[in-house]
Amino acid sequence: MFQIENLHASIEDKEILRGVDLTVNAGEIHAIMGPNGSGKSTLANVLAGNPVYEVTEGTARFWGQDILELEPNERAQMGIFLAFQYPTVIPGVSMANFLRMAVGNVRAARAEAEGTDAKLTPREFRRLMREKMALLKMDDSFASRYLNEGFSGGEKKRAEILQMALLEPSLAILDETDSGLDIDALRVVSEGVNALQGPKMATLMITHYQRLLNYIKPDYVHIMIEGRIVKSGGADLAMELEAKGYEKLIGEFAVPA
C-alpha cells in the first residue's frame, strides 16, 4: 500500500532525511523509534506535505501514486492522516465547524474516486461526531470549543485522534502521540487508535519511548538514526532498544560523515 524509497529531505538546506526506505501494508502497525533529532518527525511532516521541508530525492508511493508533489489537502483526501505532535491553535473556529468541513471534503473526494455517494447530512454528521467523541471519552461540550485553544496536552492528543476517527484514513501517521500524556490519557488515546485499526488501515507510529508500544502493539519496529532506518525487526526490537539505549545503537549504526 505504501512504499518509501530513498527519501531525502532538507530544511533550510540542511539535510535531515538521508535515504529512508520503508514499506507498509494495509492492516499493519509500524513503529519508528529513534533518538531526538534523528528525523522521525521530519519524516511524518514530509509525508503529510509540510511545505517547510524540501524533498530532494526519492519517492513515496501510496497505492502506486507518488504523493510527494501533491498538496497536503490532496494527500488527506487520498486517506493520509498525520496526528500532530504539536497541534496548532486556530482561534474562533469551533471543533464542530472545522470537522464538518474536513470530513465533508475528504468524504467528497473519496466518493468521487470510488464513484459512491458519501454525503453526510448535518444530522448524520453530528451523530457520527458524538459517537466518536464517546469512544474517546470526550465531553459533548468539546464540539463547541475552539480548535486546540486552551486544550490541555491530553485534550490536544485526543482531539487529534478524534479527527482521525472521523476522517477514517487508510494511512495514519502518529507523531509522538504519547508525548505529554499521563497514563490515563495514554490509555484512552491508545484504546481509540486500537479501535480504529483494522485490516484496511495501516498505522505508522513515531515515538521516542517504548512506553506507547505497551498500549499499541506494533507488527514491525524500525530504528531511525541520522535520517535513515538502520534496523528493522518485530516488536521485540523495541525491547532490545529499551534495554540497550540509543547511545549504544548510535555507536553501532553511526553514518560516516
Partner: peptide, 24 residues
C-alpha cells in the same frame, strides 16, 4: 498546513482562520 492536512484547500484554510478571527 494544519488545516490543509485535514483536507481543506489553501483558500478554505485561510477563510476559516479569518472567520475564526472575527467570530467574537
Amino acid at each position: 498546513f494544519y488545516l490543509m492536512s485535514r483536507g481543506l484547500t489553501e483558500t478554505e484554510a485561510m477563510s476559516m482562520i479569518v472567520n475564526g478571527f472575527i467570530e467574537p
